[in-house]
Design a binder for these strands. Structure first.
Lengths: 325, 325
DNA sequence: TTGTAAGCGTTATCAT
DNA sequence: ATGATAACGCTTACAA
């Protein structure tokens, strides 16, 4: 593989001059032509590692998320990669599996590899590792006022879900979802839901648990037994994610409760398995593409040390599917 | 950020010694302790770019696929990342969108960035860019006898689909799918299907088109009009992918044909949207995890210049879903 | 076993 | 405008 030195010799100039041509620093036009011809002739390509060593930039961003094997994250990652590529950056994919140790390892890897920044979706306590030492953008999760974070408007989403259920004729509505000590995104969905209900004097129930998936299942079974088995006491449900919604709907089907005739259901996320997929259940859709775009923009602003908003909340919207009337 | 020199000074040894400790080259135990303490104290982390410059390895692999925003590819990418990580490598995600130009750019990027190798799923003609100059593993697509490729047993899958339809009581079966000049994987599925039918003297129809998605839709409409509208002439269908199967089933529903009562359907892929998702339609499942594993293994063998099989065909299996009896 | 120093391919500073 | 050269942080051959 030809090096800059070879090109310089071939063109009859000094390496510094070649470097200037490569980096678009003005040189005499004739010289430029000479150099460019030599580059073409020798099929020269700059060595990014030598360059990285000098300028300490790699045009590489680590994207940490629980797992790419999930429609929401794969859609997000797809869009993030697209945005990064547009600005000439590369994306390292990191599946943390929500494992704190993994997340920490990935962060350390990113620092070690002199990556230019990190975009992360994480639900564990990694506050102390997220230093100012590497540009960091958090999606969905608030760390501290110093860490930029991008999120969709979960509170408004919860409100909207309640509103849409009521609009669709529901009289007794409920929120269901497994909570988390750390994930404020889902908490805000619940708060939005409650907020709408209190403001409008609407009766509501909450089926929530901050615990393991198994414990939540048990709670959910009880909740269904209580409210849907003998007599249908609740006719509208807002599930904290589409997956919870889907799971809930299946349980209703099992006891022959019809959706949306007997019970209407709204989920949250609105992610599809692939770009031409259709929306199926009624849901509050997160603006995934915009989230990706804003995350990348924010990261670049941090890298370039430009002023930026530390907190970006993006608008959600309602998508009607078959689970509401 | 501390450098090796700082560590050397702190530990009272030479840089060469520190390097040895880092690279697990034997040194006197006491010295090792000394160095390790200095490393910890200074929070030293090696600069991968300086190292890359020297040894010309980056522990980075480019994974090129059409789009991560698709269950099959996201499951595959998830597993590839996992395998790569286990051997200390990083994965650069490349969404080609099946665009040849993109693929070429990514390949060139991989070479330029001195990545250690490429794992790619591509359906375009990039043969000439896939040189021996960078370790390359192709999934699902055969290039030449020099390029290693990993694939599931598509032929056997087609056979198995036909067999299962017959086993389930179908009398008149058909293959449907959009073909491609380049993608031999799907072609083999068809061939397997046909092979089973001819061997067993079974009547079969083929609804296939090597053209645009739109053209295929038109053909499919005609096919349905002809075979399912007035009278149901075909009672078993093997669709070349799960997506084709799903689409086909929806069309049948539209004309009130019941699956699996009137018509049974088997798809291909068996990918799920996320790890705990369930299989829904009957399908020929590709061994995604194994494909990922074998791809990474093969790539590493190429990198390390070890002997390897240039062609790895992996076993498929049938998964029964609601679309067959 | 350990220290010394050359060199990897760039960029950037200084002279010219 | 261009050429010469030091420096980036590391590995490795060689010397001690």
């Amino acid at each position: 593989m030809a090096t800059m030195k070879d090109v310089a010799k071939e063109a009859g100039v000094a390496v510094g001059t070649v470097s200037k041509v490569i980096n678009n620093i003005p040189v005499k036009p004739e010289t430029k032509v000479l150099v460019e011809e030599a580059i073409k002739k020798l099929k020269y390509e700059p060595n990014v590692y030598a360059r990285g060593l000098k300028i300490n930039k790699t045009n590489t961003v680590a994207v940490i998320l629980p797992t790419i094997w999930h429609p929401f994250f794969s859609e997000l990652a797809y869009n993030i990669e697209k945005c990064l590529r547009e600005v000439g950056m590369k994306m390292i994919l990191c599946n943390s599996e929500k494992n704190q140790q993994s997340e920490i390892e990935y962060i350390s890897m990113a620092k070690q590899n002199k990556m230019d920044g990190i975009i992360a979706i994480t639900y564990s306590n990694i506050d102390e590792y997220v230093s100012e030492k590497i540009p960091f953008v958090s999606i969905d999760r608030y760390f501290s006022k110093d860490i930029t974070y991008i999120s969709s408007d979960n509170f408004q989403g919860g409100k909207l879900a309640a509103e849409k259920l009521i609009e669709a004729g529901c009289k007794n509505i409920a929120y269901i979802g497994r909570g988390s000590k750390i994930d404020n995104a889902t908490r805000k969905r619940k708060e939005g839901f409650i907020s709408y209900c209190t403001e409008n004097n609407i009766n509501y129930s909450i089926c929530e648990l901050l615990g393991s998936a198994n414990e939540f299942e048990i709670l959910l079974d009880e909740f269904i037994e209580e409210n849907f088995k003998e007599k249908i006491k609740i006719d509208g449900v807002f599930a904290v994610t589409d997956r919870h919604a889907l799971d809930f709907i299946k349980r209703l089907e099992n006891i022959n409760v019809n959706v949306p005739k007997d019970v209407q259901v709204i989920g949250f996320d609105g992610s599809r398995s692939f770009s031409q997929d259709e929306f199926k259940i009624s849901t509050i859709r997160q603006p995934v593409e915009l989230m990706a775009k804003k995350s990348v923009e924010a990261l670049i602003n941090i890298i370039e040390d430009k002023p930026l908003e530390k907190k970006v909340i993006l608008p959600i919207n309602f998508i009607k599917g078959y689970t509401t009337k």
